[in-house]
């Protein structure tokens, strides 16, 4: 009996080893471990054994059964694995074929620059003020210390609609309007982005429509050194931590003193190159301390309040930053141009 059991184990293990698929393996299981299988049969013959031999044989039979069972399981796992691998191998694809494209647009380079500047100043506690593009002569000029007949009006030939209404030539009227709304009480801390219009022929460097961003801070004890510090912080964030700024005296009717602001060239770092025309500096802003007439006209006491204002051109900044050579690109909307500003 013992020999029979050992022989059965031997046979079964051999057949398991030979089984090449799950079906063959199942046949082996049924053949050896089934109710009509030889091991069951052997066990049925146990009655003929002596009481001493019975438990020994019983144990042996269970051992054989267990060995076959475990061999079956092992083989099953192996076959299943093989099957999966075969299936997966048949499912292989060419990963180099192109993916299903996701169609993406992107924002205009001017929006890109404007939003970057907006966010920078929002971070410094500014809010964004907006105003009409068709503006009263009063807000565009007079409230900004440019009375009728002022020689500086020559500097900005304008699109008038009537004698009193025109397309704004700068975003400064938003400053005048915002100050007026504050009714003589500070602080005012705004930037004003928007479209402006001038009577220029469109060419590589001129556009009858362009954008501007102005900033205005009015409060007690605002100093010109605050303007310098603010613009320095802006220049570093916008153009790089190594940037420096410098003020050059200038003239705007709505500020006194007035300055032009240069940023050390972000292309060459100030050594002189094509971008900065060899000077190491790039003119980027006009700025100054708000003229007392402007404060007074908007209802602020110029003895108590001071303020600074600055203005810049997103087109110019974008042209410098991205090396764009013609301002007309911004308004032609050639997709081959727009697509270039798609990175985060």
């Amino acid at each position: 009996m013992k020999e029979r059991l050992q022989q059965l184990q031997q046979e079964a293990l051999e057949k398991i080893a030979q089984a090449s698929d799950l079906k063959a393996l199942n046949d082996v299981r049924v053949a050896y471990l089934g109710k009509k299988g030889p091991i069951t049969e052997v066990l049925r013959g146990m009655g003929a054994l002596s009481p001493e031999e019975r438990p020994i044989m019983g144990a042996l039979a269970n051992e054989v059964r267990a060995a076959i069972q475990s061999a079956l399981e092992e083989k099953q796992a192996k076959l299943e694995q093989e099957e999966i691998e075969k299936k997966l191998a048949s499912e292989a694809i060419d990963v180099t074929l192109p993916g299903r494209p996701v169609r993406l647009g992107n924002h205009h380079p001017l929006t890109r620059v404007i939003e970057e500047i907006e966010d920078l100043f929002i971070g410094m506690g500014y809010t964004i003020a907006e105003g009409p593009e068709v503006e009263k002569d009063y807000y565009n000029f007079e409230a900004l210390n440019l009375p009728k007949g002022h020689p500086a009006r020559d500097m900005q030939d304008s699109f008038y609609i009537t004698e009193e209404i025109l397309l704004r030539t700068h975003t400064s009227p938003v400053q005048a309007r915002t100050m007026e709304k504050h009714q003589g009480r500070g602080p005012v801390k705004i930037i004003c982005p928007g479209k402006v219009y001038r009577r220029d022929n469109d060419d590589a460097t001129h556009s009858h429509q362009f954008t501007q961003i102005e900033g205005l801070v009015v409060d007690e004890n605002i100093r010109m050194s605050d303007l310098k510090g603010t613009l320095q912080a802006f220049a570093k964030k916008m153009f790089g931590e190594d940037r420096e700024i410098r003020f050059r005296p200038s003239f705007f009717p709505f500020t006194e003193p007035s300055v032009e602001v240069d940023v050390s060239c972000f292309n060459c770092g100030g050594h002189g190159c094509n971008v900065c025309k060899g000077t190491g500096w790039i003119e980027i802003l006009g700025a100054g301390m708000v003229h007392p007439n402007v404060l007074e006209m908007a209802g602020f006491d110029s003895k108590k309040y001071t303020g600074f204002a600055f203005g810049m051109g997103p087109e110019r900044i974008a042209m410098l930053k991205y090396g764009i050579d013609d301002i007309r690109h911004f308004y032609q909307n050639d997709l081959r141009f727009l697509q270039q500003f798609n990175r985060a």
Binding site: G105, K195, L338
Partner: peptide
């Protein structure tokens, strides 16, 4: 833009 459109800026006049 994420839906696939490009932002254009054109003239007001």
């Amino acid at each position: 833009e994420d839906a696939g459109l490009f932002q254009a800026i054109t003239y007001s006049l």
